[in-house]
Amino acid sequence: MSESGLTSDIPDEIKRRWSISSAFFLADTASSMVHRVGLTDGSSAILKRLTPRGLGELPGMTFLEWRQGQGAVHLLQKDGTECLLEDAGDLTLRAYRLQHGEGAANEIICDILQRLHTSGGAPPVGLTTLDQHFRSLFARAETESDQRLREPLQYSAEITRELLARQQMIKPLHGDLHHDNIVTGGSRGWLAIDPQGLVGDPAYDVANIFGNPLNALPDIIDPQRIRRLCDIFSETLDCSREKILRYAIAHAGASICWSLEDDGSVLNESENALERLAFLTVARGLLSDLSP
Rank of each mutant, 00 (worst) to 15 (best):
D41H: 09
S21P: 01
R166Y: 02
A165Y: 01
E235I: 10
M1L: 09
L267Y: 04
R150C: 11
I249F: 09
P218L: 02
L116R: 09
I159V: 14
I14A: 05
A216F: 12
L163A: 01
H251T: 09
K171P: 04
S270W: 10
S22I: 08
H133T: 09
A192E: 01
N268A: 15
D201V: 05
T160S: 10
E151L: 14
L191P: 00
L267I: 05
V73N: 08
A88Q: 05
A95W: 01
C239E: 07
E57V: 04
Q70T: 12
D262I: 07
G200M: 00
L55A: 11
Q70E: 13
R246A: 10
T128S: 10
A104T: 12
D28K: 15
E269I: 02
E271H: 14
W258R: 04
I182Q: 03
G126H: 02
L64H: 06
K78Y: 07
G42Q: 11
P152R: 08
E158P: 00
D111N: 15
I108S: 10
L177W: 03
I193A: 08
Q70L: 13
S291M: 15
K171C: 15
G54I: 08
A248K: 02
G80M: 10
D146E: 11
G101M: 06
E269K: 09
T29D: 07
Q132H: 13
F279W: 01
L191C: 01
V282S: 06
A104S: 15
L286G: 02
I220D: 07
S32W: 06
Q168R: 12
A254P: 01
R67C: 02
D176W: 04
E269F: 02
H117R: 06
L85A: 07
V266T: 12
D194I: 06
G121C: 11
L177H: 00
D231I: 06
Y204N: 08
G42K: 14
G285E: 14
H117W: 07
L191I: 01
A192Y: 01
Q114M: 12
L286Y: 03
D90N: 15
S270T: 05
G211V: 13
